[in-house]
Simulated scan of single mutants.
Amino acid sequence: MEEATLMGSLIEELEAREAAARVRVKELAAQIAELTARLEGEREALSRLRVTRETVAEVLTALSGRDADAGPVAGPDPVGPEVRVVGAIMVPHWREGLSSDVLPDVYRDMVEVVADASSPMQAKQIVPRIGLPAVTGKIEGTRGKLKRLVQRGWLIEDQPGRFAPARRDR
């Protein structure tokens, strides 16, 4: 009889431990879901802030009377005088004889991906091809950069949200 009581107590103890472990797993899963949502929100905020900072730097450069075709922050513009704007990546306007080599890496990658495509592309198609995760924040940040390339004459937006090379002869 003692063995049956001992086995019954052991089974009850195991069931109690299993129930406690199940509660801990459920709590941890809820925490992970909350942290994942917070992380995605922060990534989106970071992307919007980066695009905003770049846009503000461009506007300030234009308002200060400097050349809007300034090159990257790290060094002189390969086609003109050095203009240094701290914290901004500048995309020069396209002009005859200018290759995509003058663009910052990510912009050059976008132009090359679009140029290699057989038809106009959307930002969500371009993001994975330039090595970024296909999440909302990256897609929106990329869309902003693509629109900047359209404004500067590197690409065209033949339909809303569909980007193609401005010149097919490249």
Results as ranks from 00 to 15, higher is better:
T136G: 11
D69Y: 01
P104N: 08
P78G: 08
R95N: 07
R50M: 12
P92V: 05
E54I: 03
I126M: 03
V111M: 04
A68W: 04
G97A: 03
E40N: 04
R168K: 00
A70C: 12
K147E: 14
G87K: 05
S100G: 08
D77F: 02
R162L: 14
Q125S: 11
E15K: 07
E82W: 01
T52A: 15
T36M: 01
L28G: 03
G75M: 00
V113Q: 07
T5Y: 08
S47I: 02
L63C: 09
E27N: 11
E112I: 04
D169R: 00
G65K: 09
A30G: 11
P92C: 03
T142P: 09
P133F: 00
R162W: 13
I156N: 13
E40K: 10
M110K: 06
R38A: 06
P160I: 01
V83R: 04
P81T: 03
S9Q: 08
V127F: 04
V59W: 09
A30W: 00
G131D: 02
Q31S: 11
P81Q: 09
E18N: 05
L155I: 07
G65N: 11
E27H: 06
D109T: 10
E40A: 13
L28E: 13
M7H: 09
R38L: 07
V135N: 10
A115S: 13
V51N: 12
E12Q: 13
L103C: 06
R148T: 15
K26E: 15
A16D: 07
M1E: 14
T142R: 04
R148L: 15
A33P: 02
V51G: 12
E96C: 01
R17C: 01
L6S: 12
D116R: 09
G8W: 02
E157T: 11
W154E: 13
A4R: 09
Q159Y: 03
L149T: 07
D158W: 02
R53F: 07
A4L: 11
V111G: 06
R170D: 13
R108F: 05
V86P: 07
T5N: 10
S64G: 13
W94Y: 15
H93K: 10
D77G: 11
F163W: 06
A123I: 04
K138I: 01
R50P: 03
R108T: 09
V23S: 12
R24T: 03
V150F: 04
L103G: 08
L98T: 10
A117Y: 00
V51W: 10
A123D: 06
L6W: 06
T52V: 10
V135M: 02
E3H: 08
A115K: 05
A37Y: 00
E2M: 11
P76K: 06
V91C: 11
T36G: 12
R162E: 13
A70D: 09
V113Y: 05
A134H: 06
A70S: 13
I126C: 02
K138D: 11
V106I: 15
E157L: 06
R129D: 01
E54D: 15
T142D: 12
T136L: 04
K147W: 05
W154H: 10
L6Y: 08
A29V: 04
A123G: 09
S47T: 09
R48N: 12
Q125E: 14
R129N: 03
A57H: 14
R148F: 02
R84Y: 15
V86Y: 10
G161W: 07
P81L: 05
R170A: 11
V25S: 06
G41N: 04
E27P: 04
T52P: 03
E157H: 08
E18P: 00
R148I: 13
K26T: 08
